[in-house]
Write a protein that binds this DNA or RNA. Sequence first.
DNA 1: CTCATAGTTCGATTACCATCGAACGATGAA
DNA 2: TTCATCGTTCGATGGTAATCGAACTATGAG
Lengths: 226, 226
Amino acid sequence: MKAGPQIAGLAALVGDPARANMLTALLSGAALTASELAAEAGVGLPTASSHLAKLAAGGLLAVEKQGRHRYFRLTGSDVAAVLEGLMGLAARTGQLRTRPGPKDPALRHARVCYDHLAGELGVALFDSLARRRLLELGEGELRLTPKGRHFVADFGIALAPIAVLQRPLCRSCLDWSARRSHLAGALGAALLARIYELKWARREPGTRIVRFSPRGEEQFRHLLAA
Amino acid sequence: MKAGPQIAGLAALVGDPARANMLTALLSGAALTASELAAEAGVGLPTASSHLAKLAAGGLLAVEKQGRHRYFRLTGSDVAAVLEGLMGLAARTGQLRTRPGPKDPALRHARVCYDHLAGELGVALFDSLARRRLLELGEGELRLTPKGRHFVADFGIALAPIAVLQRPLCRSCLDWSARRSHLAGALGAALLARIYELKWARREPGTRIVRFSPRGEEQFRHLLAA
DNA sequence: CTCATAGTTCGATTACCATCGAACGATGAA
DNA sequence: TTCATCGTTCGATGGTAATCGAACTATGAG
């Protein structure tokens, strides 16, 4: 037995406020520099450097150096999934010094979850795909149906390039705010990218908020209703 | 922003080896006493008591006093899901001082995940239900199809009593060992209970292992193949 | 080369917390 | 009531780790 120590090490990494702040900042999917993360966490640069080294050693962060900058990002969407899971727990168990700030409704409405869309609109997207049988359960994992493939192609996404990636195409991710599933995986990422490309929405700088334009949201909802 | 501190508090609770051992012990779904948990964690009683108080205050554990015993259990399957998620991360990021012990294959084969079946057989169950369209995606959540309802009834489970419970009937839970989904939720719990009832399998005392009898596993696989 | 920015390393400080022994309630058994 | 068991509370101890200032390295700009 004794699986305890293994998960304890990881959990302890997340268990420091400064590191937790860094990780949640990286939930935006962007790669950030050590200085940015230090500011985000509210600690000095030496402290941040130490924390980042530990997170990288623990396998939660990957580093990429570009010139004199070092960019950090989460090593995978599974890290993001665990973090969102913890947020869900925090919401339920009432660690709620949450006290809904002004940005909170926007976060609930549409936000980025590592690299895909979450929040009400993310859940709505998932629901729509499931309702119209564009997505189905096959062999225990989510799969696009032939109809789903057409839908994706019509939306302007070429499946071939992303299907060869190692990561699973479709994956569900439990939503922190809505407690429902939304679409993750390579397809989830591609859909969000396309939404940006169509200028239906853009990222609110420095936050996880995805801000849809009125017209963009209308078109998005139309896409789901079809 | 600053969702960090909230999840940091929770993660820090899991981040202590002694507490992590207690939590993983409770993943078996059983309610354990303070003394048992102290032994499981390898600490003295006073230490355990302090840890348990913190876990309860953090909303991860619920207490039930019976006579001079105090039984602790996880407050919900979402706690179990986060713990399994952490195990999955630990497996991937290679915190593997795992060094597969003798009990490990049995754990991978069939184990209990809070109150439902996980491991290879758990994944196989989920796959079979999905392949035969007994389970489908509806409105973004897993749902039993009419055919699925028949299947469950034929297996000897009355849906009416469990359908009225607050918890969702079907839920998927990402498997730590197989990295695939297995069936959680009230239905997952009912299925496992029925498996015990039919004496196809029994719990290995003091572990999370679900030990199928040769005959029980045969019948189980027959059920999946049908 | 010189300067500025980005980041790390080192050392010292500090604060927190896990741990245990001992004493103290609380429940049940004889 | 008396005793044993289960558990908590208290106080003291020790170790760990977060933090920062200062010094050091590395990259890029002029």
